[in-house]
Each structure stands twice: as structure tokens, then as C-alpha cells.
Design a protein around this nucleic acid. Structure first.
Lengths: 216, 216
DNA sequence: TAGATTGTTAATCGATTAACAATC
DNA sequence: TAGATTGTTAATCGATTAACAATC
């Protein structure tokens, strides 16, 4: 997506800093809108969309307000228009290349997981200490030494990290040095990295432990 | 807030409702303590532990304070004692049985993922519409019809949900009716369920989308 | 006792919700 | 115009952080 040099009115809100939690919910709303589109809904009110997304209508309106005025007072939101705007804001216009590092159990699973491709992300390469041991369908599995040149050459910004916890910090530093800007961390380790790199943690064992606590 | 009667110390912390975010971080602290134990640390200060866990020392002390006084002023926390207390509070004393529903790509991956077993959770059975198509090592893969009797008989409280988004709501209702108390939801659907059942959502595509937004 | 570090209180910050004026 | 629903402001709620008295 090419950007005009001077900001147009549409872009007025593009660079507003939207809180992280709101951005997360925007993704949620987008998925709810897809459902509504599939059910041939044309117009949706904040109350209706909020109920699908399981949030309060006031919160939904507030979240959307960060993106500029998107609805029509007295009427509601045009479903297709809102969907398109959210797609723009979330940057889903273009296919995003991603690499995956650590092709063990979980890593191999994510390689074959269809959910990413469906939503605009393409895993273009996987990396492992012992690349020959891995079957990964169409995706090339490379040696760790190939990481930096591939990331640089293809200008890849995002990585999925699935190495064992004991290796995670060291590999994460490699990713940072190679020029990666964001890591989805599935390892059990807490990563200590410069603030310029974004990290989202998905710790499956902790999620279960957390649920377990609340079942008593 | 004026209380007529002051609760005794035990009363105060036994049934204390610890905020969800704090419970999550307690799991994190527990894992950091394991690291410190491995490095033969005996005593740890809030500053040291906080730095390992990437949180503020004040937040760590506050979080721990929900669990009663666990440290010694002027000295710090006894590593083994604190670990044991956190394990008790988080209920890691016993092995927790879990079922997995939907053994597609992601489901099969989680079945073979070692991370759960390592941390006190055992996937005792998997369920799928077409159980015969799945290879799952030692774990029995059963027809959906077998769900309710198995959950009841073995008094299973937790489920991992990996079915396609289009089936998720319906299957989640089945889980609820079968007597499940907590769901780790990997499907793309937003589940509408009674408040008595706990749900944690892990939406991999949204995590990536969220990171993608913050890399610009 | 002097130094260190917790546990707790008070101040700050941010996020959610309620209320309503703007306006379709 | 009357009814509906947004966008926004103000009130509320909860979570984080700073500060410090308690105490080892």
C-alpha cells in the first residue's frame, strides 16, 4: 500500500495512537462484521454489533471513534463501509510475510495451520537448528544461519517464535539483529528486548493454569 | 470502605478474590522462580524477581500481597517457600485432566505438544466428528457422542476447543451441558455462554494482526 | 543500631461505562 | 417534526505506581 506524501483527510486518523486493547477489539469487530456480511446485513447498530462481539455498546462506539466518525447518527453503521475501513486501519490490504522459528511440535503444527493464510499472513520460511528433520509441505525449512539474509532480502518484519524456552532469549536477540520488528512468542520464556520491537506472548500452559484457578 | 468486622488473616486470604490479571502474573512469577531455583538461588528480592518477570517491583509486591505476607522485610522472599505457596494457590498440586475437542490441524498439534503435560495438565481424551481419521499417539480419539458420558464419569472440568469457527458455538454449548467449567477457546468464534463457565480466548490470527498494526 | 526490603496506603493513570447533545 | 442512534464528554471504576512506615 503506497502512502501519499501529504496526509489526506482520510488519513487524519490513520496515525492516531489507538490503545492496544482497542486495536485488539477492532480485529474482533472486523470478524463479527464478516459474519454479518455473510448473513447479508447491510446496516448494523452499535447495540447489535456489540452484542455479537460480547462487549458494551458504549465501548464499541468509543473504540470506533478512535478511527474517526464511521457511522450515521440515527441510523447506525454501513456494514461494508465499516469493514473496509477497519481492514485499512488494521493494514489487511496486503499479504504480510512472516517467518517461523523453531519447527518442533508446535512449530510444525502452526506451519500447517490454515488460519493464518486465511487472514492475510503468509509464512514464507521456517528456521530450525536441524532443518533436515522437518517435513513442512510447501514451506522451505532453512538452517538458522540463513535467517538474517532472508529477513533482510525479503524485508520481513514479523516472526513466530516456537523454540524451547531455554533457547528463546538468544534466538529472539538474533531475530532483533536480523531486523525483525514484531515477535509472536509461543515459548515459555519472558523475552528481554529493546522497546522498539513489539512482542505478543501466547503461553498455552499459563492460559490453562489461569482457567484452572477460576474453576474453583 | 468501612468494615464492621476485621477478617482474621487466614480468612482474609483464603477466599480472597485475586484479580484475573494478577492470577496470570502469579503463573509468570512461578515460572521465573523455577529458573532461579535452577540457578540455585535461595533468596530473591522483589526487585530481582520483578526484573526477571519484566514487571515493576511495586506491582510484584502488590500481586504477592494478595496471597498473604510471603516475604521477610529487610531480606526478601525465600525462593522455595514462595514457589510452594504459588503452586498451592494456583492449584498445581494435582494433575488436571483436560479434554480436547476438534482434532484438525491445530488440535492434533496441541495433542502432541509436550508443554501441557510438563506443567500439570493431562489431555485424557480427544473428540472429533470423524475420530477414525486422526492419529493421536496414546490419546484416545472418540466420537462426539461419547463426550458427555466421559466428562461426567471422569469429572473433567476443562476443555480445549479447536473446532472450526462455524461449529464453535454449538460445540461450546455441548461442553457446557456436559458439565465442563472452563474452555480454552482456539476457535475464531466469540462464544456466548453463561457466566458460570470460564472462557479464555487464544486467537492466533488476531495476535498476528495486532502485532502487524504496531509494526507501522 | 543502621541498612535493607517488605507490605500497605495514597496518588496516579488509564480504561470502561453512563449520559446526553448532536444530528441523521 | 419525532424517533433513533451516533460521537463525545463527564463520571466511574479498576489497575498500576510511588512513597513510606513497619520490621527484619
Amino acid at each position: 500500500m503506497n502512502r501519499a506524501l501529504k496526509p489526506s483527510p482520510e488519513e487524519k486518523h490513520q496515525h492516531a495512537d489507538i490503545p492496544r486493547k482497542t486495536v485488539y477489539r477492532l480485529s474482533l469487530y472486523l470478524r463479527c462484521l464478516e459474519l454479518i456480511v455473510a448473513n447479508s446485513g447491510k446496516i448494523v447498530s452499535s447495540a447489535a454489533l456489540a452484542s455479537v462481539a460480547c462487549v458494551q455498546p458504549a465501548q464499541l462506539r468509543r473504540d470506533l471513534a478512535y478511527c474517526g466518525p464511521l457511522g450515521k447518527r440515527g441510523t447506525g453503521y454501513d456494514v461494508l463501509f465499516l469493514r473496509n475501513r477497519l481492514e485499512e486501519i488494521l493494514g489487511r490490504a496486503s499479504l504480510q510475510p512472516v517467518i517461523l522459528v523453531g519447527a518442533g511440535n508446535l512449530g510444525q503444527a502452526l506451519l500447517s495451520y490454515k488460519g493464518f493464510a486465511k487472514e492475510g499472513f503468509e509464512i514464507v520460511a521456517a528456521f530450525d537448528l536441524r532443518p533436515q528433520r522437518i517435513k513442512a509441505g510447501k514451506i522451505p525449512v532453512c538452517d538458522m544461519h540463513a535467517l538474517q539474509p532472508i529477513v533482510r532480502k525479503q524485508a520481513i518484519r514479523m516472526a513466530i517464535l516456537c523454540v524451547p524456552g531455554s533457547a528463546a532469549q538468544q534466538v529472539a536477540e538474533q531475530l532483533f539483529k536480523a531486523g525483525i520488528h514484531a515477535i509472536l512468542n509461543f515459548s515459555t520464556a519472558v523475552l528481554h528486548l529493546p522497546e522498539t520491537i513489539a512482542v505478543n506472548n501466547v503461553n498455552l500452559a499459563i492460559e490453562l493454569e489461569n482457567l484452572s484457578y477460576f474453576t474453583r
